[in-house]
């Protein structure tokens, strides 16, 4: 457009047309009737999309937290189960559960080879020893030569011995792994 008119055009554009009256809007609303509400359902307003985006963001965060909690819970229960198993004393434990498929484990745990003789020589005195059953493994029926068949079970323990040193007034714990095999002879018929 001609430059001489651009200033006039700009001035005209700054003029704001008068707004329709409230009465006119009411008349239009009345004239449109229920048809005026049709677009309400067809095209949501821009503002309605904002909460949806927020919900989507929160859904992602919630999903992430949910997955994290599942991993956390599974780790916790796995760890807890291992710890419970490890802390189950052989003598005081629920043997019915542990030995459901096998015979009662020997009342006296197998003696550890590493009994801390070197410590005893150094002045340490053993206070007590606790054996904890770590694992029970059913190895099935074995057929030793010149003997009747037997069912074999393998036990794995942790023997924890507490030593005390009277001179140093201190205590020390020594844990030694131990493995034992228990055989139940089968009566062939």
């Amino acid at each position: 457009m001609n430059d001489s008119f651009s200033e006039l055009e700009k001035e005209l554009q700054e003029l704001s047309p008068a707004k329709p009256t409230t009465v006119l809007r009411q008349q239009i609303s009345k004239a449109l009737g229920p048809q005026g509400d049709l677009a309400l359902r067809c095209l949501p307003e821009e503002e309605k999309l904002i909460p949806f985006r927020i919900v989507r963001k929160w859904a992602i965060v919630a999903g992430f937290i949910f997955l994290l909690s599942i991993f956390g819970a599974s780790y916790y229960f796995q760890h807890q189960h291992s710890r419970n198993l490890a802390e189950t004393p052989v003598s005081n434990g629920d043997s019915s559960m542990l030995l459901r498929e096998g015979p009662t484990p020997p009342a006296e745990p197998f003696k550890a080879d590493h009994s801390g003789q070197a410590l005893v020589k150094a002045g340490w005195k053993p206070l007590n020893t606790e054996s904890v059953l770590i694992e029970l493994h059913d190895e099935g029926v074995i057929h030793p030569s010149s003997q009747p068949p037997s069912k074999q079970f393998r036990y794995r323990y942790h023997d924890t011995t507490t030593f005390t040193h009277p001179d140093a007034n201190s205590e020390m714990q020594m844990t030694v792994p131990r493995e034992g095999v228990f055989q139940v002879k089968l009566q062939p018929y």
Partner: peptide
């Protein structure tokens, strides 16, 4: 949310 769209247009 329940405002008819024609009002915004108008």
């Amino acid at each position: 949310t329940f405002e008819p769209l024609w009002k915004e247009w108008f």
